[in-house]
Design a protein around this nucleic acid. Structure first.
Lengths: 340, 340
DNA sequence: TTGTAAGCGTTATCAA
DNA sequence: TTGATAACGCTTACAA
């Protein structure tokens, strides 16, 4: 049992250094406004006591946390992990700390997390996607919380966002798929109701089909939660249907990897028997066999620039324009000509 | 430009409800100690004002944050993401919030993050691995911060830990590899100097070799940072050496996936031309082609039980024994007999 | 069951 | 350049 020693406070330091608490505070926050002599004395005292400022007290007094909150759907999705890593690094460079919370793709949980982070005094917020209740939007507006939406573009431009055109990107990919002669298409999509990215990608497929003169009936859609196994099971359902598709497009790479696994388990060869595509271009996309045709999204760049944009919103207090990043089609082995 | 409305405080709620601030506080924290009538009145006022308690103020007054901090090497590693997700869920169930920080595998950054989280009043800390400076260990002891170490076992039992025997697990896998007739082995390891898990796994390989009568010279080791590409490049170095190994063991699945990719790029067939093994059993291990032989670690269970153990340390203030979880060998297609 | 009032450890304003 | 001192918004004895 070690003796419980209370953390040293400003007062302890002040007493040891023979100055007032105000001076200690200044030595720590605005060192240039002190005589070199007292500054040294204070910093010595800080060191010998191992003093670290109490965060809560500092927040109360200064009404600033230097903290940014981010709420992502899940930590298990590599694209968010990658984007957040870059986001965090850029924030650190600017003296900010990142608080991460995850919503498990549940809107109610997201709301709760938003309120928690705001109560914790987050100076700004990074959110994913646009789907959000009016109540929570009003809350953020009323409280005047600088907020940036990422991984999607707010086409109405009613709030700052950084992302890419999910619909256009998916449409471009679908055009390629159709260009390979595929007519019976399928889409394994994330749950669309609460996920604007999923809806936009779905719409992109439809747009490409319409442009090519295909009807919406030529598309079978399976919605499923995130996860490799879910992708695999979705593929099952497609394959046991009356007229199986010749190409299966997936709303993200993880679902696509699952679909490819199941295809192999069913004795199918990709892309000879069925073409499969993804979205995101996570690392495994290139490692899969055959390599996955997908849409490359610059996640790390998005994270970095999201940090810059959010800080700009916070300091300038001016409206910062939305930032559109471009995506790249990555045509790899999993997409081939229709042979049926 | 919206009008900046300051967040409502306890006082606002109290005035609207016609009670004292103490009563509002009680209505929120110990509702059963109030008359149903006043409680309703207070909660109504809370709702109409959209009141949310100020976290910093609450912390200052109660000297408790209900916050647990976790510092992981990187968010990009799926094993930590998965473990933390479970950790967080279990904490939430118990009314705690998780703060995550990452150290980018840098000990200095880890120290800084520890100090940051402590200054923020983390009631407890989850740390990965044992490698830590005396200074920071002393700091944690002095401050009496409940701390749990995960993903490894503290064999000296000088502090509570939850994890598995990395050395024994890797040794068991190496025995299998040797049992397949491999004599020239290689190990692609994470940077060992600052990573006890990496060192333990390395030692496990050596122990298995010694037991089988092989000499340490029969093992070539390449140390490399985390990442698929790094695994691929490490494989390159091994393969262009004088006597390439017949089996390449990897310190984790991500390195192994990289190694398998490069092997394929070099025109090698796994396991005919070279066997490859991993460690962790992340999801892609089963999806890889051939599927990766690896060591299964119950990451989610570890996260869940880590939360329980840490809460136990915090409340009981008693020393909680270290928890050893068991691992499973997963023999899959990437390991085959030595044919050279 | 409810109210009063004293902190909690900083920062920031105002004087000196 | 430094020091007093009043906030900051909440919890929690202690009283009533």
């Amino acid at each position: 049992m070690s003796i419980l020693r209370p953390a040293p406070t400003l007062d302890d330091v002040a007493r040891l250094a023979g100055v007032s608490t105000a001076t200690v505070s200044r030595a720590l926050n605005v060192p240039d406004k002190l005589s070199a002599d007292t500054k040294d004395r204070v910093l010595d005292a800080v060191r010998t006591l191992g003093y670290a400022p109490n965060f809560a007290a500092r927040v109360m007094a200064s009404r600033k946390t230097n903290t940014i909150g981010a709420i992502i759907p899940t930590m298990e999705n590599a694209i968010f992990a990658q984007g957040l890593q870059a986001f965090q690094e850029e924030l650190r460079l600017n003296g900010y700390t990142l608080l991460v919370a995850s919503s498990a793709y549940d809107p109610n949980m997201e709301e709760e997390q938003i309120r928690t982070l705001v109560a914790r005094g987050a100076d700004g917020l990074l959110l994913i996607g646009l789907d959000r209740s009016d109540a929570i939007n009003a809350f953020l507006r009323d409280r005047n919380i600088p907020t940036l939406v990422a991984w999607t573009l707010d086409q109405t431009n009613s709030r700052p966002s950084i992302g890419f055109d999910n619909r256009a990107a998916m449409m471009a990919l679908a055009q390629k798929v159709i260009g390979f002669g595929h007519r019976r298409l399928a889409l394994i999509s994330a749950i669309a109701r609460t996920n604007d990215r999923a809806r936009a990608r779905w719409q992109g497929v439809l747009d490409a089909m319409e442009q090519a003169g295909l009807s919406a009936e030529d598309l079978t859609v399976v919605e499923t939660p995130y996860g490799i196994d879910n992708g695999a099971n979705a593929f099952d359902r497609l394959w046991t249907a009356d007229r199986p598709p010749t190409a299966v497009m997936c709303g993200n790479d993880v679902l696509a990897i699952g679909a490819m696994r199941r295809a192999r388990e069913l004795g199918l060869e990709v892309p000879r028997d069925v073409s499969i595509t993804g979205f995101d271009d996570i690392e495994i996309a290139q490692v899969a066999h055959p390599a996955l045709t997908t849409v490359h999204v610059p996640h790390a760049e998005m994270g970095r620039r999201a940090a810059q944009a959010l800080l700009a919103i916070m300091t300038k207090a001016a409206d910062v324009p939305s930032i559109a990043l471009s995506t790249d089609l990555k045509l790899r082995g999993s997409l081939g000509p229709n042979t049926r």
